[in-house]
Amino acid sequence: MNAVLRPMQENDLPRVMEIERAAYPFPWTLRLFKDCLQVGYNALILEQEHLIGYGLMSVAAGEAQILNLCVHPDWQGCGYGRYLFEHLLDLARQKEVKSVFLEVRFSNEAAIHLYHQTGFNQIGVRKRYYPKGDKKREDALIFAMDFL
Rank of each mutant, 00 (worst) to 15 (best):
R137W: 02
F106L: 14
L44G: 02
L5H: 00
L89W: 02
L67D: 05
P73H: 06
C70H: 01
R128K: 15
H87D: 11
E86S: 10
F26R: 08
A111L: 07
L5M: 12
S99T: 13
M17R: 07
C78V: 00
A92T: 01
R6M: 01
Y80C: 03
V4C: 09
H72A: 11
V100H: 02
R82F: 02
R82H: 08
T29K: 11
C78N: 08
K95N: 12
G133Y: 02
Q117N: 12
E47C: 06
V71Y: 04
A61E: 14
Q38M: 04
K132N: 15
Q122P: 04
Q38C: 04
V16P: 07
A144K: 15
Q65T: 10
E18A: 13
H87K: 08
W28M: 09
D35Q: 14
F143L: 12
Y54V: 07
T29C: 11
S58N: 13
A60T: 14
D90K: 09
V97Q: 03
V125M: 06
L46T: 03
M145I: 14
M57W: 00
T118N: 05
I112A: 10
L88Y: 00
I45W: 01
K34Y: 03
Q76A: 07
F26N: 14
D74S: 11
I19S: 00
R128F: 03
E18P: 11
G40F: 02
Y83K: 08
N68V: 03
N11K: 09
Q94P: 03
Q9Y: 00
C78W: 00
E10Q: 11
P7V: 07
L32S: 15
A110F: 04
F106V: 12
K98T: 08
C78E: 10
L51C: 13
A60N: 07
H87R: 06
I45P: 04
A3C: 11
E10M: 11
M8R: 04
V4K: 06
A110M: 06
L37W: 01
L141M: 07
Y24T: 05
H50F: 05
R15I: 15
T118L: 09
Q9R: 14
E138M: 08
Y41L: 13
D134V: 00
V125H: 01
Y54C: 10
N11I: 03
Q76H: 05
G53P: 07
G124F: 09
A43T: 02
F106Q: 14
R126D: 10
L84W: 00
Q122N: 06
L89G: 04
M8L: 15
E103W: 01
L30E: 15
A22P: 06
K135R: 15
E10G: 12
A61V: 12
N42I: 13
R137Y: 12
Q9E: 13
L67G: 04
I142M: 06
D134E: 15
Y41Q: 13
I52A: 00
P27E: 03
P7D: 11
E49G: 06
I123M: 14
V59A: 09
F147T: 11
Q65S: 04
H72M: 03
E10C: 04
S107C: 07
A22E: 12
L5D: 03
G79N: 05
V4G: 01
G124S: 08
L102P: 09
F147K: 11
H72K: 05
K95M: 10
A43P: 00
L102M: 11
Q65H: 13
V125S: 02
D90T: 05
Q94L: 11
F101Y: 15
I66V: 15
